[in-house]
Each structure stands twice: as C-alpha cells, then as structure tokens.
C-alpha cells in the first residue's frame, strides 16, 4: 500500500465501498450455488457475481488506478465487455446441455419439447 499514500478521501471511500459490495455479491452468489435445491435454481445464483459483483470491483479498480496514477486507466472496460458478452453464452449453453441430458433420462422436472403442429403424443387418460 505504499503507492496509495496520496489517495484523496472520496476515492478511498468509494473504492472500499465498491470492493465490499462486489465481493459480498460474489459470496452471496456462490453461497446460493451451495444452498439452492436443484440445478435450474442454482444456475441463477452465479449471475449475481458475474453482473453487479464483477462490475463494482471493476469500477473500484478503475477509480483507484486512475486516481493513484493521475491518468485515465480504463482498460478494465475490456473485462466488462468480455463478461457482458460471455456470461449469457456460457449459462445458456450449460442450461441447454442440462435440459438435453434431463430429457434424455426422462426426468419429469423439465418440460417436454413443444409440439403444437403435431398432435400431442402424451397419453390422454393418465
């Protein structure tokens, strides 16, 4: 912490606040990963860390480095863009893979494929 001697109060407070918020959200998200009961509930939990959690830590990093180095350090924007683009893609791929595997096993917690054009192949009297 030797470089940060000349940090003004507002920047230090803002950085501290954003760091705690970001890390707290990441912890809540990962805790939800442990706590929630089935896979489709659990897949919602890490989104907390990947949206607002990493977002606030990136803003904290940008504020801190910009103030301490007396210039705009905004290359954290690259990670922001990367997270915005990649998180939905990974989660969608994972959800589709899980849906595919559950359907293959005939699990009853997932809905069947939608077939409005063809007549329903479910038995009527059940």
């Amino acid at each position: 912490m030797t470089q940060a001697v000349d940090l003004p109060d507002w920047a230090a407070l803002l950085t501290a606040f954003l760091l705690i918020v970001g890390a707290g959200l990441a912890l809540i998200g990962s805790f939800g990963l442990l706590r929630l009961k089935n896979f489709y509930d659990r897949i919602h939990a890490p989104t907390l860390g990947t949206t607002l959690g990493i977002g606030s830590i990136l803003i904290a990093s940008m504020v801190f480095h910009s103030v301490t180095q007396q210039r705009f350090v905004i290359h954290e924007l690259l990670i922001t863009v990367l997270m915005v683009v990649t998180t939905p893609v990974t989660l969608m791929l994972l959800a589709r893979a899980a849906l595919f595997r559950d359907r293959l096993e005939g699990s009853d917690i997932v809905p069947p494929r939608y077939q409005s054009a063809r007549p329903s192949d479910k038995p009527e009297n059940q």
Partner: peptide, 9 residues
C-alpha cells in the same frame, strides 16, 4: 481513511 481502505481490501 487509508486504514479503512486496506481493511476493506
């Protein structure tokens, strides 16, 4: 304030 920041880190 600086101790606050290092603690929060």
């Amino acid at each position: 304030i600086m101790t606050l920041l290092s603690w929060s880190i």
